[in-house]
Design a protein around this nucleic acid. Structure first.
Length: 84
DNA sequence: CGTATGACGTGCA
DNA sequence: GTGCACGCCATAC
């Protein structure tokens, strides 16, 4: 967790999100080491080429689903299937 | 090295 | 309660 860059940390945190649970970008950013880097987190998700990242479990701090590569509706469907 | 961009967050109108 | 604008961080060009 110390040898990892912000991006790697964010990826790990998102991977660590339990099924049926959601985390806000600010939360992930904080766990990644930068509580104010919610934007950077979103950028990583957008740049994310890692298929193991449930980006659909990452939402905005106010409870909005945010974005999902333009598949916001799909995001809600995925979360609903997970018991969210 | 400096500039521009973005899947966000918070505050104010 | 909703909408607009500003601010912050990291990455890519």
């Amino acid at each position: 967790m110390e040898e990892l860059n912000f991006t790697e940390k964010v990826l790990l945190v998102v991977q660590n999100i339990p099924k049926g649970e959601t985390k806000s970008y600010s939360e992930v950013a904080q766990l990644a080491g930068s509580p104010r880097a919610a934007r950077a987190v979103g950028n990583i998700m957008k740049h994310n080429v890692y298929p193991h990242i449930p980006c659909h479990r990452v939402i905005k701090a106010d409870g909005s689903l945010g974005g999902y590569n333009g598949l916001q509706g799909k995001k809600e469907a995925l979360l609903r299937e997970e018991g969210w």
